[in-house]
Simulated scan of single mutants.
Amino acid sequence: MLMQKMKTTPNRLLENSKKIWFICLLMAQGCFVIYLILGYALTSVTTGLSGWVRLNNTAYVASDPIGNLIYATHVLLAVVMIIGGSLQLIPAIRAKYTKFHRYNGRVFVLLACTISIAGMYLMIVRGTVGNLLMHSLTMFGGGMVILSSIFAVLAARGRNINSHQIWAIRLYLAANGVLFFRLMIFAWFLTFGSLGIDTATFTGPTVLAVSICSYVMPLLIAELVRYAGKTSNKVITIATAALMMFISIVFLVGLFGVVLANWYPAIIG
Score class of each variant (00 low, 15 high):
Met1Lys: 10
Met3Val: 12
Gln4Ala: 08
Thr8Gly: 03
Thr9Asn: 12
Pro10Thr: 04
Asn11His: 13
Asn11Pro: 04
Asn11Lys: 12
Leu14Ala: 01
Ile23Gly: 10
Leu26Trp: 08
Met27Phe: 09
Ala28Cys: 14
Gln29Cys: 14
Cys31Leu: 10
Cys31Gln: 15
Val33Lys: 11
Ile34Ala: 14
Ile37Arg: 11
Leu38Cys: 14
Leu38Arg: 05
Leu38Ser: 12
Gly39Tyr: 01
Tyr40Thr: 01
Tyr40Ala: 00
Val45Ser: 10
Trp52Asp: 04
Val53Met: 10
Asn56Glu: 13
Asn57Ile: 10
Thr58Phe: 07
Ala59Cys: 04
Val61Thr: 11
Ser63Pro: 08
Pro65Gly: 01
Pro65Tyr: 06
Gly67Asp: 10
Asn68Asp: 13
Leu69Pro: 03
Ala72Gln: 12
Ala72Trp: 14
Thr73Leu: 07
Val75Thr: 02
Val80Arg: 07
Gly85Asp: 00
Gly85Val: 04
Leu87Lys: 09
Ile90Trp: 13
Pro91Gly: 05
Arg94Lys: 09
Arg94Ser: 02
Phe100Met: 09
Tyr103Phe: 09
Tyr103Ile: 06
Asn104Leu: 09
Gly105Ser: 05
Val107Asp: 06
Phe108Ala: 03
Val109Ser: 00
Leu110Arg: 02
Leu110Asn: 05
Cys113Ala: 13
Ser116Cys: 02
Arg126Met: 14
Asn131Phe: 10
Asn131Gln: 13
Met134Leu: 15
Met134Ala: 09
Leu137Glu: 01
Leu137Phe: 15
Met139Val: 15
Phe140Ser: 04
Gly141Ile: 07
Leu147Phe: 01
Ala152Val: 02
Ala156Glu: 12
Arg157Gln: 09
Arg159Trp: 08
Asn162Val: 15
His164Cys: 03
Ala168Leu: 00
Asn176Phe: 10
Phe180Glu: 00
Phe181Pro: 02
Phe189Ala: 06
Phe189Arg: 08
Phe192Trp: 07
Gly193Val: 03
Gly196Pro: 02
Ile197Pro: 00
Ala200Ser: 08
Ala200His: 07
Gly204Ile: 07
Pro205Cys: 03
Ser211Thr: 03
Ile212Gly: 06
Cys213Ser: 13
Cys213Lys: 04
Tyr215Ala: 01
Val216Thr: 00
Pro218Leu: 05
Pro218Cys: 03
Leu219Met: 11
Ala222Asn: 04
Glu223Asn: 13
Leu224Asp: 04
Leu224Ser: 14
Ala228Ser: 15
Lys230Trp: 07
Ser232Glu: 15
Asn233Asp: 12
Ile236Thr: 12
Leu243Thr: 00
Val250Cys: 00
Phe251Cys: 01
Leu255Pro: 04
Phe256Trp: 13
Pro265Ile: 03
Pro265Asp: 09
Ala266Asn: 14
Ile267Glu: 02
Ile268Ala: 08
